[in-house]
Structures are given as C-alpha cells and as structure tokens.
Design a protein around this nucleic acid. Sequence first.
DNA 1: CTCGTTGCAAAGGATTTGCACAAGT
DNA 2: ACTTGTGCAAATCCTTTGCAACGAG
Lengths: 157, 157
Amino acid sequence: MSGEPAPHEPDAPPLAAQLRARGLRLTTQRQRVLAAVSALEHGTPEEIGARLRAEAGPDGAAPDTSTVYRTLELLERLGLVWHTHLGKGAPVYHAAEHPHLHVVCQECGQISSVDPTLLDAAAERLAADLGFTVDVGHVALSGTCRACAEKSRTEQP
Amino acid sequence: MSGEPAPHEPDAPPLAAQLRARGLRLTTQRQRVLAAVSALEHGTPEEIGARLRAEAGPDGAAPDTSTVYRTLELLERLGLVWHTHLGKGAPVYHAAEHPHLHVVCQECGQISSVDPTLLDAAAERLAADLGFTVDVGHVALSGTCRACAEKSRTEQP
DNA sequence: CTCGTTGCAAAGGATTTGCACAAGT
DNA sequence: ACTTGTGCAAATCCTTTGCAACGAG
C-alpha cells in the first residue's frame, strides 16, 4: 500500500501483454472468450459458450466447450476474470475490471452488483483481527430481494 | 424486530416438531443425516454420506446417497441446516444453530467462523438501500488467510 | 520450424429422478 | 390402511482429459 498509479486504467491488464510475458500465445479464442465474459455481466461457462456460438453465426466456428473451460481457468490465473458461485448450478464469471460485490436472491436468482466499499469496514476488521485478506471480487452475499420477500409474505400470511 | 425471546435455545428448532407440523415423517435416516451434519462442522453431501456409512458399520444400513441429498434439501427448507459454496467442488452443509459467518482461504481451503455481527452494518445498509435481506448463514467470504499470504510472499519475492 | 493450443470425443464425478417396495402415523 | 420416504438404478448435468492436427511466434 503506497499509492496506486491510477484508479483504473482504460483497459487495465493488457491481455496480450500478460500472455507474452509468460510465453503464452494470443489466440482468437482467448480474445473472444474474454470479450464474451465482459459482455455477459454474469455468465456461466455454458452461457459463455452459447454466446460465442451465437456470435460466430452458422458458418463461423466458435471455441469448443473444453476450450472455454480451459480459457476461463487461464484468464482467471492471469487475473483478468473472476468467478463466483451463486447458486447450486454452475459458477458465473465476470471480467475483473473494477471490483464489485455480488448480491444474489436465493429465491429468484436475480443478481445485483453493489458498491464494494460496502464491505470495507468488515474487510479491515478481518485484516486487523485475523490477517485475512478478503477478495471482494469473489464475494457473493446471499439473501432475499425485496420482491421475493413481499411475495412470500403475500402467499403465506 | 421487537426483542427475541431467547438468544439461543438448547436445541433450537425441534426436528420432530418441524416435521409433524408439516405432516411429514420422522425417520431414522433424517435423524442420522441431521446428526451427521452437526457432527461434521462443514461437510459435503459426499462426506456426510461417507460418515453415515462409517457409523452404520458393515452390516447396518446407511441412507442411500439420493436420500442424503433429498434429506439435506428438506432440512434446509425446514431451516435446520444451511449450505454454502466454498470452492469449486461441492457445497458444504452446516447445522443452523446460531448463525455464524464463514471465511474461506482460497489457497489452503481453511475455513474459519467469524462473528456474524461483522456484517451487520453492511446488512443494514443493503436492507435500507435495496430492501435486500442478507442471509448471514449463507454468506462466505473468500480471500487469503495470513499463513497463505506470507507463504506466497516468501515463494515469489 | 517448434511448441503451445484447439477440437473432438470419451471419460468422470456429482446430483437428480422414476418407480416399486418399505415404513411411519 | 393410507401416504410419505427410501433404495436402486438409470439419467442428467457439468467438467475434465487424451491425443492428433493446427497455428502463433
């Protein structure tokens, strides 16, 4: 902690650079997967694959499912994307950009993004108490959204 | 919010009562699964099943895997257990008892339980802002524990 | 040209479901 | 007895892996 250069740059971590630095290769697939993750706010591997198929059209070839998984894992290791487990099913991926907090309704599954500073106080407390560093990008708060709370109040009086 | 009767009773929600109230039946399997969840602090469905097998011994019959899953779902709906997704793998279940917050290290997987009041401020903020009710029992904070933070500092200077 | 990457297809693990029988009330 | 719960086995869903061909540097 000694002053970050910039709050958040235009395209923060240069994909190509990250790859070259590690002797890895910049492929169309990797660019497309990353783009898809950014485009879909919260996408499961399956949804990301589906989107890539849609973008590719009938004749254009989309990355294979296995490639999507492999690429997501890679991108995560490069720090370009993060994943979170929201419900029972598949994890959702989101671009690392500026960190944000996920809030998920257990009933309807709706996802909201919240200002991460919401947890700053708690995070500092954990750091001071346990030396534990909270990774805000990974955090998801579960609960019940307003709509579902009212709905269940109506259905079960 | 008008004063809770007691901070936490000896055996808060009576399993049998919960079942009878809904016309459901009290079976050995259900009692055993609940007991196993309590015994294992944080158990995956698989681990819970394994423990039941072990408890049953060579000749005693343990609940089937599918029964474990069905029962966990039921117990959760009854409010007796909660599940949380810690890593990529399976969800972990824990007895509902008094609520506590889970803090998980992404590297070593170690789980710590923290005072849930840590999130009270954030929870109230969400309630006021979005009408969203945070379910503290479900929440898991991911990050890096002190040990792992120091370890990676040593290995990559 | 060399080595990382991809596609394909099959394997693997985890969770769910249909149905007939066993068990709780 | 009546209805719910369980065991069994097959079906699904999600993810991973081996290997030959392909493409970036």
